[in-house]
Nucleic acid binder design. Structure first.
Lengths: 152, 152
DNA sequence: CTTTCTGCAAAGTGTTTGCAAAAAC
DNA sequence: GTTTTTGCAAACACTTTGCAGAAAG
């Protein structure tokens, strides 16, 4: 007896697997948080996830959202990223590989990009200093075309 | 009648000028915070500046330190920088040009570097997306040689 | 039934702000 | 003297934690 998995996103299966592996439980609130996170576009704050989860289930608690976000990160579904202005955001990690960010300081719009030449140069720098690479992030801050035109 | 300025670092004059320009006052606590900041090596947290300032003058208040750090940043003496782990640090900005960071995730050691090729590639990305550059920062996180050797 | 999970409220961080007394100019 | 600055304590924003009852397996 298995439930229909027709429209079920693979992210849910991934979370279930992750939980089962360590004796944790799949619950309605956890499913709700994941659904909220997946439904939102990239680069959301914890607060935005909380608000969206609340929209789906008004009884959900803030602590549960924070705890679940941590689970999602551990399960490889969400990636935590701090902006250069110190704000904390989460982006989709499942089937979204590494990329860097071009951020408009005026309207906040974020463009994702990867530059192979920069990626290669970074490896060279790690090697030159004898470091083992763990993770890297380049953030370009500037003014986007629309804001420039609007004189912002 | 002018006071001797023999050993006076140019940073103090800069701060005095900045304050005078906007009708603000040079005070002992402000001088102490600047002295604490200058005396510490790069990449210090507000708390470290506070501790050091307290060492120089036990009566100084936390709020004064935070307020003065902001002044130093506005005056171009300090640069605020958020690490990819969300911690906030300050580094010397006076006569220290832009650079990127190679950070050891184990011991915290920070190596500063500039790669002309990467800098050029960044400009190309700004242009390709029609953005006007404001500021950019690359952070490479990894394990330094010493920590690697120690198996950390 | 046993263990994990939940929501709540309280506690923690790190930083900012309101205020009356003190210092700068 | 007038204005800015100070230290203190309270307020703040964001996040984590303790707990007793609820839910999962």
């Amino acid at each position: 007896m298995r439930k229909s998995s027709t429209r079920r996103a693979p992210e849910f299966e991934r979370l279930e697997l992750y939980l089962k592996e360590r004796g944790l439980k799949m619950t309605a609130p956890r499913e709700m948080v994941l659904r909220a996170f997946l439904g939102l576009e990239r680069h959301v704050s914890a607060e935005e996830i909380f608000a969206e989860a609340r929209r789906l289930d008004a009884s959900i608690g803030q602590a549960t959202v924070f705890r679940t976000i941590k689970l999602l990160a551990d399960a490889g579904l969400a990636r935590e990223a701090y902006r250069d202005d110190g704000t904390r955001q989460f982006e989709h990690a499942y089937r979204h590989e590494h990329h860097d960010h071009l951020v408009c300081v005026s309207c906040g719009v974020i463009v994702e990009f990867v530059d192979p030449a920069i990626e290669r140069a970074q490896e060279t720098i790690y090697r030159a200093h004898g470091f083992e690479s763990v993770q890297h992030h380049l953030e370009l801050r500037g003014t986007c075309p629309a804001c420039k035109k609007a004189g912002r």
